[in-house]
Design a protein around this nucleic acid. Structure first.
Lengths: 301, 301
DNA sequence: CTCAATGTTACCCAAAAGGTATCAATCTGT
DNA sequence: ACAGATTGATACCTTTTGGGTAACATTGAG
């Protein structure tokens, strides 16, 4: 059974005539006879019955014509769909994103830009850490990642989407709130709270190291998993925490102060990540373009 | 695009390998390469991407594989369906049946036998007179008819399903009820009721003619369309009517008597009717067989 | 009864599918 | 790092299949 036979059959069924079908198909009439004979033999079904000097469809033929129509339409649909996916108009992408912090950054702009660019595409978003994203990219579990660390793997391309200075977040009631400028030495004896190591594996170490270089020993009082709880402790004025400048902006309805630390030169970045080999695929290309559009546009791979 | 290409593609997609697919398909590997190249060029879509020394499916390829699977399954289903219809296991028949009287005769047995024989077949029943049935058969509006007259048309085959003697139906209170035997002369002056001429076009005339041959003039008092009303009038004892012997049996809970008329030799028959040219088709063959099984089995065409 | 129209059969040629040999790329094992 | 094995692609040839032309059988119309 071949599609050609279905096409021929459908033309004959619709025209109710071999001759008219042969004209419509731009094929002479004898080949139609033979294709139909072969097909019917293969099926073991009589689809035509002679009527006068022409033919008519049998009951089986009528039902089969209906099916053939659907099958041929399905083929067209399938091709269109594949074409759409190849062009990035259709299909779906699996994106891994860093839990928590990123959802209020450039990530939303990226997604918005992508959705606007390819409205037909389906999105699947899965929360995972940057390191998990890299593994998921390599094993093709996701197609795109958005996290806080640049991958070291050469097979992964990345783009820095934002870069914000790390500073101190404290209550207005806190003694240090009066200082116009802050130094690491000022906070040597403060109770410092941080988000847990799993989220920012390097932040913890980087912070301690940077302070030590200035001869200051920072004491991290606790790692608090729940962001709300952490904020609550800071609001009470009992402790301080380090966050990026931009991170604090959207939540600024809470009366907390963000202060840069003059001799602390640490930055938190967000990175879009993807497989280099996928740069040719339309979906990833669209995502990278959306990322450039949404982010600062500064590519550094 | 041909089904062969879809079959090859699906095998390759499922095996994720041209070589393994070539083994499964019992075809050497180069033809697969070429078919896939041709298909992709025709579609304008890349379905495979090189991976190591093998290949993997692109996103478009994965989606297309899913579709291809459905298409190939649809083809099989379509063929099976056509085969089923051709064998009479599936499909639907349109049957015309005589209104009223027939629904309690051999017709129900016929339908029951047919349903039992071909449980997968759909039935469409339409009430129509014998004459309407013949026209509907000729114009292919119905496939089978069940009525009270045998068609004269040579293109239509028929089978007498039942043959019942016409006799007098009267109330036990009626004066004639005392007679053991009846003659036409006995009912010369009775009020005779009949079902309307449209239902039994010839009964009326046949009855009058048969009586006249015996020198008896029958007086038809009224033609009563509604069967219930007719029966009511007979029960009251005011009038008599002619019905076939079998017709009365199922309704015999009503206290009426059926009596043969010795010198009246009229019979009412029921006939199954079909197109001669359809005798080869499985559905009609099944119906005719069911008819023979349900009826007396006496074929007379 | 002849003639035109329709589908089938017979035959030929062209196109396309399948097979073999070979090649380039890549992974494996030492 | 290198030889050998494996995979898919290419080149070329053979076989199969599809399509065209011509003649034929059947049927319906004038």
């Amino acid at each position: 059974m071949e599609l050609r036979q279905l096409r021929y059959f459908l033309a004959i069924a619709e025209e109710e005539s071999f001759r008219r079908a042969s004209e419509r198909l731009h094929v002479s009439q004898p080949p139609l006879s033979r294709q139909m004979r072969d097909m019917q033999v293969e099926m073991g079904v009589e689809l035509f019955a002679p009527e006068g000097r022409g033919i008519r469809l049998t009951a089986a033929g009528k039902a089969f014509a209906e099916r053939a129509r659907n099958i041929l339409a399905s083929v067209d649909t399938a091709v269109d769909e594949a074409r759409g996916i190849a062009q990035g108009r259709l299909g779906s992408v699996h994106i891994g994103f860093e839990t928590g912090t990123t959802f209020m950054g450039a990530f939303l702009s990226l997604i918005a830009a992508f959705r606007k660019r390819t409205p037909g595409a389906g999105l699947q978003l899965s929360p995972m850490s940057s390191i998990e994203q890299w593994a998921a990219l390599r094993s093709r579990k996701i197609d795109f990642g958005y996290g806080v660390y640049a991958p070291t793997d050469d097979a992964l391309g990345h783009l820095e989407m934002s870069r914000d200075r790390l500073g101190l977040l404290l209550s207005p009631e806190h003694p240090l709130a009066r200082n116009k400028t802050l130094n690491l030495a000022d906070i040597e004896n403060e109770h410092i709270l941080l988000q847990p190591r799993q989220l920012y594996p390097r932040l913890h170490a980087d912070l301690i190291t940077a302070a030590r270089l200035r001869g200051v020993t920072l004491r991290v009082a606790a790692e608090v998993l729940d962001l709300e709880a952490l904020m609550a402790l800071v609001v009470i004025g009992d402790a301080v925490t380090f966050v990026s400048e931009k991170f604090w902006e959207p939540a600024s309805q809470v009366s907390l102060l963000w202060r840069p630390v003059d001799d602390l030169d640490l930055y938190l970045s967000e990175f879009a990540v993807w497989r280099r080999e996928d740069e040719g695929t339309p979906v990833v290309r669209a995502l990278v373009d959306s990322a450039k559009q949404a982010g600062r546009g500064a590519a550094d791979c």
